[in-house]
Design a protein around this nucleic acid. Structure first.
Lengths: 192, 192
DNA sequence: ATTATTTTTAGTACCTAGTCTTAACATTAA
DNA sequence: TTAATGTTAAGACTAGGTACTAAAAATAAT
């Protein structure tokens, strides 16, 4: 049974909204009208052609993935920070953090979170990692929320070195630990 | 100046990975070759045509097709690889790798390069970092080319653990060194 | 230097999924 | 019946390709 123009156009709009990758030919068959009718309908409804629709879907998603590229100064979100004492950050493991094969987080992301937290906790303009001793104690999977806790465990000495201990957890289970020896540019003099 | 076929194809792949919406015509102009050459290149590299690329971006399959070829799996460019023996990669420090204040490379990028090289040198489907002992011996600045050299220094034992030593250099000067204890899924049996 | 091989360019026919235009029908309403 | 609206068809054109054949140009091998 053939639909009225009104109903057909309404359904057409709905169909394309739901399945934007449908061709005019498929729509023509679906509504038992000619391709030309579908094209007139699209024109009246200002619905772009298939390729344009695909492209717009692609660019929307592309923009999002491209936007997600710039690297932050701190990996993960800092939720607590007591300069020269302790700091906590949370990193939620996203698809881009894991091996595609097995969804296990790549080690350097855990390291990056811990390292940047160690940098952040140092109350200095310039803090650099000199040495690190780290352990990956458990695999971290996609969607895990990694809580990294940094603790300054040694008062800065005259050489400008500070030791920061970072332990990372997923659901209270330790997944990573590291001892970071940090260099600070200006020696610690207790000023602000 | 015209590039060699090798370099052109390498750059082509990189260009399409970065800007998948580029047409053959634009690529032909960019590399000063004919459209046919671009098409032969794409064929040899198994890169699908523009519309298929757009479609795959739209359906979010892009990561599986071209983007995540070998490039994103390894930080830096691998220039030598002898499985279970040694590997070398080069990472050029870009603005996104450095602290904005002082243009010094953030430690985790050097770690990422070394760690992913350690993963790559292991001849196994699944290689994970269990432990790492690392040293940052010199500051690395923007535009530095960091050459990381990995060496498997211990034959895999029955626990599925392998130790990889990675040393990174800028202009022959050591900037980073690390000892990575790697876990491999299947025990090494000397086959193949 | 002269083959041989690889690489590049050119040209043709064909494809999809459209566009835009004109024209012929079909259906419905006054 | 005529006019308006709706539908279908036909033709010419487009982008961005594929697939194939063939020739020219550059490079390597003997």
């Amino acid at each position: 049974m053939r639909l009225s123009k009104d109903k057909r156009q309404h359904l057409l709009q709905e169909t394309i909204r739901k399945t934007p990758f449908v061709t005019d030919e498929e729509l023509a068959k679906k509504f038992s009208v000619s391709i030309q009718t579908i094209r007139l309908d699209r024109m009246e409804l200002s619905i772009p052609e298939l390729r344009e629709r695909i492209k717009s879907v692609a660019t929307n998603q592309w923009n999002e993935t491209v936007k997600a590229l710039p690297i932050d100064e701190v990996i993960g979100e800092i939720i607590d920070l007591q300069l020269d004492e302790r700091a906590i950050s949370i990193l939620e493991i996203q698809p881009e953090h894991v091996f595609s094969r097995n969804k296990i987080a790549r080690g350097h992301h855990l390291f990056a979170q811990a390292n940047s937290l160690a940098v952040a906790v140092i109350d200095d303009e310039l803090a650099l990692t000199v040495k690190a001793n780290i352990n990956f104690t458990q695999q971290v999977k996609e969607k895990d929320r990694v809580v990294a806790k940094a603790k300054v465990i040694q008062e800065p000495n005259d050489k400008g070195l500070t030791v920061v201990e970072v332990k990372s957890y997923v659901n209270q289970k330790k997944v990573f630990s590291g001892l970071f020896t940090m260099y600070r540019s200006t020696e610690y003099k207790g000023e602000n």
